[in-house]
Computed example of a mutant assay.
Amino acid sequence: MSMIPDDAMVVVADGESARVFRNIGRQGVLTLRQDETVTFKSLLDDGPSGHAPPEQTEKQTDEATFAKQLSHHLNRGALTNAFTDLVLIADPQTLGQMRPQLHKETVKRIYAEHAKTLTNESLHDIEKALR
C-alpha cells in the first residue's frame, strides 16, 4: 500500500462497530492512534436505507442500519473538515452498504479503501496491514 498521509483518518469497520484512528506519524511513518469507537445507536428509531428484502434477518437489518449510521458519521466529519484524507477498511458487505450513503465530499476525501475484516485485530496488526 502507498504511504498514508499525515493526519489521515483511518476507519476500520464491520457490521457492528468501527474503530476510528488518526495517523499521527510524520514524514511517511505510519503510527495510528485510536480516537474513538463507533457502535449502534438507537436501532429501533432508525433503519437501513432503501428496501430490505423480506428474507433479510434482524441481524442483517441491524448491520445495514449501522453501515448507514457510520456513513452519516463520516459525512458529518467531511462536511465539517474534521479530516482531509480517509482510509476506509471494512468487510465487503459493510463497505458495499456504505458506498451509496457517502456524500460526494466524503468520497472526494477517500485516499484508500479496502474490503477486509480487521475490526478485532490489534493496533499492530492493523498498522501492518496498512504498510
Rank of each mutant, 00 (worst) to 15 (best):
M1L: 13
M1H: 11
M1V: 09
M3I: 12
M3D: 04
I4F: 11
D7W: 07
A8L: 05
D14E: 10
D14N: 14
G15R: 06
V20W: 01
I24Y: 01
R26Y: 00
R33Q: 09
E36P: 02
E36S: 14
D45H: 05
D45I: 01
D46T: 15
G47S: 09
G47R: 07
A52H: 10
A52D: 03
Q56T: 14
Q56S: 14
T57W: 11
T57V: 11
T57H: 11
K59G: 07
Q60K: 12
E63T: 13
T65F: 13
A67H: 04
K68A: 07
Q69S: 14
L70T: 06
S71F: 06
S71L: 10
A78L: 01
L79S: 06
T80R: 06
T84N: 10
D85P: 02
L86S: 03
A90R: 04
D91N: 12
G96P: 06
Q97F: 13
M98A: 02
R99L: 15
R99Y: 08
R99G: 02
P100W: 15
E105W: 01
T106H: 02
T106L: 02
V107R: 10
K108T: 09
R109C: 09
R109K: 15
R109T: 04
I110L: 10
Y111T: 07
H114T: 13
N120P: 02
E121T: 07
S122P: 03
I126A: 05
K128W: 05
